[in-house]
Write a protein that binds this DNA or RNA. Structure first.
Lengths: 177, 177
DNA sequence: TAGAGTAGAGAACGATCATTCTCAGCGCCA
DNA sequence: TGGCGCTGAGAATGATCGTTCTCTACTCTA
């Protein structure tokens, strides 16, 4: 197993564990056990846990936005498709809210790299929505609905929060359109 | 100092510290130092840290909802006043988002009492909004906006997220009214 | 005033965990 | 073949922290 494959395995294990249990609740030993990569090599790839956390967030950001983008694009870039995608996500087994919001809650004073990763993710999602609808104001309103639905779905466990947000989005789009 | 006063001091210290730094980042020693209550008495009042966390959340829930309710009530129970209150909150020094959302992110598998406190807070806020506007659907839509604005204001540090949500709420209210 | 009970200060204990170290094995090149 | 360097396994280290324990001082009561 070369260093590249080790890094991939580590990131996959880290994403599974960190997302499911929270970053602080997962020890490096657990990452080693799940990935099958020795501690020594783990620390060669990621000199400290924070580096692994940062890489986990960056990777998740790309996968998450990529999945949303592809889904919505396949539906003609209809803004309402965003909420259909959300509902699918909320209904996935193991759904536990937004990894970035959760990490924000977890770290009162996050390491600089982690704080940047969190903010950047939100900035990129906002930018994506701004490209999807005319008007910054409208995009920002939809963004608030997306974030609110995600938080509520995580806490209540009800994927139907996506439908509520979708109805609101429909009204906002009609008013603006 | 009797036991009642000790409990109050402990709860005040716990709220300051837990909200500012996160629950896990704050040790019992820090609570003792800030409250001036000895460890022995701390453990008499709250047999375990989880009990203190639970009490902190319950207390914060009541204060938070009380403050919102009073503010909105003083403005004729205008639903839009909710967003004015939010903006004030977001602009407070030390604002760091919703304590319940943060706690949810912090604990992958929260102790039962803590999970209940988080869910109950959201249920009560939802019920409050349902009393403020006609139609469950509309109230739930506003709720999503409230939560989304709170999360985004915390991460971006921009109290203006409240204005964005307010504009959306205005459109939704007009459409329904 | 003697003694019982309680309080506070802070040390001690035990667990967890990030990080580093040890050691035995194995490939690789002279 | 022989030693050099790298590897994985897992023990060791050092720090943090929830919780409990010790000890001394003080406050009541008889």
């Amino acid at each position: 197993m070369d260093s590249t494959e080790a890094a991939v395995r580590l990131l996959e294990a880290a994403e599974d564990l960190f997302y499911a249990h929270g970053v602080q609740a997962v020890g490096m030993d657990a990452v080693r056990d799940r990935s099958g990569v020795s501690l020594k090599r783990l620390y060669q790839c990621f000199p400290a846990k924070n580096d692994l956390v940062e890489a986990y967030l960056l990777r998740r950001d790309e996968r998450w936005r990529g999945s949303l983008r592809d889904f919505v694009h396949a539906r003609g870039d209809d803004p309402l498709a965003v909420f259909a995608w959300l509902k699918n996500w909320f209904a996935e087994p193991g759904f536990r809210g937004c990894a970035f919001i959760n990490s924000f809650g977890e770290f009162g004073e996050p390491a600089p790299g982690i704080a940047v990763a969190i903010r950047r993710h939100k900035d990129e999602v906002r930018a994506y929505l701004r490209g999807l609808v005319p008007g910054r104001g409208l995009a920002d309103q939809l963004f608030a609905l997306v974030e609110g639905a995600t938080v509520l779905a995580a806490i209540t466990g009800d994927p139907g929060e996506a439908d509520t947000a979708r109805e609101a989005a429909k009204v906002l789009l009609a008013a603006q359109g």
